[in-house]
Lab assay of single mutants.
Amino acid sequence: ETEYTFDDKREADRAAKEAQNNGLRVHVTKDGNRWKVRID
């Protein structure tokens, strides 16, 4: 399990989409004014 934090939602969405394309499970959550992408 890996977690990334992004300031920009577009960057978070791009990272999530890339991980999904690689067959990974992805969870995107909002943390204040930042975005967390957790990859299982």
Results as ranks from 00 to 15, higher is better:
Asp7Met: 11
Asn21Met: 14
Thr2Ser: 10
Arg38Thr: 15
Ala19Ile: 07
Ala12Lys: 00
Gly32Cys: 03
Gln20Asn: 07
Ala15Arg: 08
Ile39Phe: 07
Ile39Val: 10
Val26Asn: 01
Glu3Ser: 09
Asp40Gln: 13
Arg14Leu: 10
Ile39Ser: 02
Lys30Pro: 08
Arg14Met: 10
Trp35Glu: 01
Phe6Ser: 01
Thr29Val: 13
Gly32Lys: 04
Glu3Gln: 07
Val37Thr: 01
Asn22Thr: 07
Ala16Pro: 01
Ala19Asn: 03
Ala19Asp: 01
Arg10Gln: 13
Lys17Trp: 12
Thr29His: 10
Asn33Trp: 05
Ile39Asp: 02
Asp31Gln: 08
Phe6Lys: 01
Asn22Glu: 09
Asn33Pro: 09
Trp35Ser: 00
His27Lys: 11
Glu3Asn: 06
Ala15Lys: 11
Val37Gln: 00
Glu1Lys: 12
Lys36Glu: 04
Asp40Ile: 15
Thr5Pro: 02
Tyr4Gln: 08
Glu1Asp: 11
Glu11Phe: 05
Asp13Gln: 10
Val37Phe: 01
Gln20Ala: 11
Arg25Pro: 04
Ala12Cys: 04
Glu3Arg: 04
Thr2Trp: 15
Asp40Thr: 14
Gly32Ile: 01
Trp35Lys: 00
Ala19Val: 03
Glu18Tyr: 09
Ile39Met: 04
Arg14Lys: 13
Lys9Tyr: 14
Phe6Asn: 01
Gly32His: 03
Glu1Trp: 15
Thr29Met: 12
Trp35Thr: 00
Thr2Glu: 09
Asn21Ile: 11
Leu24Ile: 05
Arg10Leu: 12
Arg14Trp: 08
His27Arg: 09
Glu3Lys: 04
His27Phe: 12
Arg25Asp: 05
Asn22Tyr: 05
Glu3Asp: 05
Lys17Asp: 07
Asn22His: 11
Trp35Val: 01
Ala19Trp: 13
Val26Ala: 14
Gly32Gln: 04
Val28Leu: 08
Val26Pro: 04
Ile39Trp: 04
Ile39Tyr: 05
Asp7Tyr: 12
Lys36Gln: 06
Arg25Lys: 11
Glu18Asp: 09
Arg10Ile: 12
Arg38His: 13
Lys36Ser: 06
His27Asn: 09
Thr29Ile: 14
Lys30Ala: 09
Glu1Gly: 14
Leu24Pro: 00
Thr5Met: 13
Asp31Glu: 13
Trp35His: 01
Val28Ile: 12
Ala12Gln: 00
Asn33Ala: 07
Ala12Tyr: 00
Gln20Arg: 14
Val37Ile: 07
Asn22Ser: 11
Val28His: 00
Arg10Glu: 15
Lys30Ile: 06
Arg10Asp: 15
Val28Cys: 06
Tyr4Ser: 04
Asp40Val: 14
Thr2Gln: 12
Asp31Arg: 04
Arg34Gly: 09
Gly32Ala: 03
Val37His: 00
Thr29Phe: 15
Val37Lys: 01
Arg38Gly: 04
Arg10Asn: 13
Arg10Phe: 12
Tyr4Gly: 04
Asp7Trp: 11
Tyr4Ala: 05
Ile39Lys: 02
Arg14Ser: 07
His27Tyr: 12
Ala19Cys: 07
Asp31Lys: 04
Lys17Gln: 13
Val26Glu: 00
Gly32Phe: 02
Lys36His: 10
Ala12Ser: 02
Trp35Tyr: 05
Phe6His: 01
Gly32Met: 02
Val28Asn: 00
Gly32Thr: 02
Gln20Ser: 10
Val28Gln: 03
Asn22Ala: 14
Glu1Tyr: 15
Thr29Asp: 05
Lys9Gln: 08
Asp40Lys: 08
Gln20Pro: 00
Arg25His: 11
Glu1His: 15
Asn21Trp: 08
Val28Asp: 00
Glu3Val: 14
Ala16Asp: 02
Leu24Lys: 08
Gly23Ala: 03
Asn21Thr: 10
Lys17Arg: 13
Asp13Trp: 15
Lys30His: 09
Ala16Phe: 05
Asp13Thr: 07
Val28Lys: 02
Asp40Tyr: 15
Lys30Glu: 06
Asp8Val: 05
Glu1Ala: 15
Arg38Val: 15
Asn22Arg: 15
Leu24Asn: 06
Phe6Gly: 01
Arg14Ile: 10
Lys36Val: 15
Ala19Tyr: 12
Phe6Arg: 00
Asp13Ile: 14
Asp7Lys: 09
Leu24Ala: 06
Asn22Trp: 06
Ala16His: 03
Arg14Gln: 11
Asp8Thr: 15
Asp8Ile: 05
Lys9Phe: 14
Lys9Cys: 04
Thr2Tyr: 13
Asp8Leu: 07
Thr5His: 10
Ile39Pro: 03
Ala12His: 00
Lys30Cys: 06
Asp8Gly: 04
Phe6Leu: 02
Val37Ala: 00
Gly32Trp: 00
Asn33Lys: 07
Arg38Leu: 12
Asp40Asn: 10
Glu18Ser: 08
Glu11Pro: 02
Phe6Tyr: 09
Asn21Pro: 01
Asp7Gly: 07
Val28Met: 08
Lys36Phe: 08
Asn22Lys: 14
Gly32Pro: 00
Arg25Tyr: 06
Asn33Asp: 14
Thr29Ser: 11
Glu1Arg: 13
Asp8Asn: 14
Ala19Glu: 02
Gly23Pro: 00
Glu11Asp: 14
Arg14Val: 07
Tyr4Lys: 07
Lys30Trp: 14
Gly23Trp: 02
Leu24Thr: 03
Ala16Ile: 10
Thr29Tyr: 15
Thr2Arg: 13
Asp31Ala: 07
Arg10Thr: 11
Arg10Tyr: 11
Gln20Tyr: 10
Tyr4Trp: 14
Trp35Ile: 02
Glu3Phe: 11
Val28Ser: 02
Arg10Lys: 13
Asp40Arg: 09
Lys17Val: 10
His27Gln: 12
Lys9Ser: 05
Arg38Asn: 09
Lys9Ala: 06
Arg25Thr: 11
Thr5Ser: 09
Asp8Lys: 06
